[in-house]
Amino acid sequence: MKIEEVMQKNVITITTDESVTVAAAKMKKHDVRHLPVVDVDGIEGVLSNRDVRGAESGSVSDYMTRNVHTCLPGDFVEDAAHQMLENKIHCLPVVDPYENVIGILTDTDLLRTLVRLTGSDRPSSRVEVEVDDKSGKLAEVTTIAKEHAQNIRSIFVIPAEDGRMRIVMRLQTMNPGRFAQALKENGCELIWPEEPEMTL
């Protein structure tokens, strides 16, 4: 997914010469924690709700963070997430090639993306297996899904220890039992649903 697919497009901005109290009021009104600071040449900085905490006078330029990290709408979401994590920041202004702010990406947008990627907001049953990290293993799993007429709503692969990998799937079904059983019979280690502690 690209940033333009998940960013907020109605971005609330502020200019360097506005007063910090106006900025604080703006954050409160729009229920946002960050305001990109702009002037005619494009982005100048970011003002966060932490910057304005306790501030009573002065202009935005006195409090804002300068030389901020930005991203482009065509960047990948996962790279933006990595950038935010590495720099311990909670938002990235999205700019066009002329440094004009055209959107903003916040940690909330990343959480929404995680929910969308994993399908945890859609009706589904979750199945997780661990297999050898070898070419063709994922195909084996999805072939078994096909044989059981299971529609996979989301799937992701996570590296595990000792040359293994974990495959997490959400299936559009009430009844994943037979599919899970077939995965086990084909040598996958079933991680979820957890094995019952008693035989049913």
């Binding site: 907001d121 859609r122 589904s124």
Partner: peptide
């Protein structure tokens, strides 16, 4: 929902 459809 950790164990059972629909997960919500």
């Amino acid at each position: 929902g950790r164990f059972l459809f629909p997960g919500t």
